[in-house]
Nucleic acid binder design. Structure first.
Lengths: 192, 192
DNA sequence: AAATAGCCTTGATATTTGTCAAGAATCATT
DNA sequence: AATGATTCTTGACAAATATCAAGGCTATTT
């Protein structure tokens, strides 16, 4: 499964063979069964996680016990809790697998080492950060501006395929509406 | 006003005198009258902007002509449109001054040069990026999870002072509610 | 200080979304 | 294939928020 990661990396940057060997040497592959936790609320997060297979979600649970999903991560994307990682604080989030998944973990110290030793890797990481931030801004815009229907259609357009892959109640949670509302929205959309 | 920027920088990282001189040499100071644009929708953004005085807002206007504010930036914070800056695409946002303001502009090429020549500066920029991303995640959570009242109280708590500094209709726009709703929410909160 | 314009609030009403409950459909396990 | 458990949908109703309209307040300009 590390081949997926290698493909991802080498498509984005050109590395020497030694550099890739160095990266590979700090990669930890971990399988996750559906429903299994990668991170539980309250624990401190020490890794960067790259998904080579499957789908994960990061979410929080409010006072009333309702889940709110901040992120879905599928193959070729990253997961984790930056806040906990950087500040060393207990995580407010939980991360678990929506499908049987495989992730590659790189410990924070190792990741920092890679960033310092491989300039191309640093660039890549920076670009990912920038893209994440731009995407977050877009999501904030949608959250404060759009109706439930617009949010749903926007999601389907932005992440084609994913809307059929995640359970509806989770999609509803991600969009910030109830499952019932999403169900009705979909019904209306179908008729058009 | 550049003294404000120097103070900001030197409080965060230690620089040699030459390094600061280099930074200063690419700083462009610009005054903005209240209401004046720093960036207009459709234009390409080429800078990083640091606010030394005043308050700016970044916003979008939807099909119905309604403004949606993505960000307020006050003294000692940054403004700009990363998306346009990085991708060279026309901006979806406008940025203008809520108060008479002073900003320091650094052209993209110059900024990249600083990042490459001054390792400490690169670190600083990275930390800012990380913090911005963490804050964005927090805002997404609030947007999809909280009621209007909770959003308002959260804002007041997170940005004390700012809620009295920006016009209420703009605060409402930032929170994703109408001015009328914010007005009513505040009325309820006052009584408690 | 007067005039003007924009902003904020308040009320009445409409719309959207949430809540609760029940039945149907789907999925996982045996 | 049968069972049970979860998820999804649908309906009736409740609550939250938006819309529209009017009046009062505030600030800016003259």
């Amino acid at each position: 499964m590390i081949a997926v990661f290698k493909k991802y990396i080498t498509e984005k940057v050109t590395l020497t063979e030694q550099e890739w060997t160095l990266i590979q040497s700090v990669c930890i592959e971990r399988k996750l069964r559906k429903q299994q936790y990668l991170l539980q609320e309250g624990d401190v997060w020490h890794y960067n996680a790259f998904i080579t297979k499957g789908c994960l979600r990061r979410y929080r649970i409010d006072d009333k016990g309702v889940e709110h999903i901040l992120q879905f991560s599928v193959e070729n994307w990253w997961a984790g809790d930056r806040d906990s990682l950087i500040n060393g604080t207990p995580s407010k989030y939980s991360i678990d697998a929506i499908e049987d998944s495989v992730v590659i973990l790189i410990r924070k110290e190792d990741f920092d080492m890679l960033v310092n030793r491989i300039p191309e890797f640093r660039n890549l990481v920076n670009i990912i950060l920038e893209k994440s931030l731009i995407a977050s801004q877009e999501r904030i815009h949608d959250a404060i501006s759009l109706t439930a229907e617009e949010k749903y259609l926007g999601f389907v357009e932005r992440y084609p395929g994913l809307s059929n892959r995640v359970p509806r109640r989770m999609l509803a949670s991600y969009l910030g509406v109830t499952p019932e509302t999403l169900s009705r929205v979909r019904q209306v959309v179908m008729k058009k």
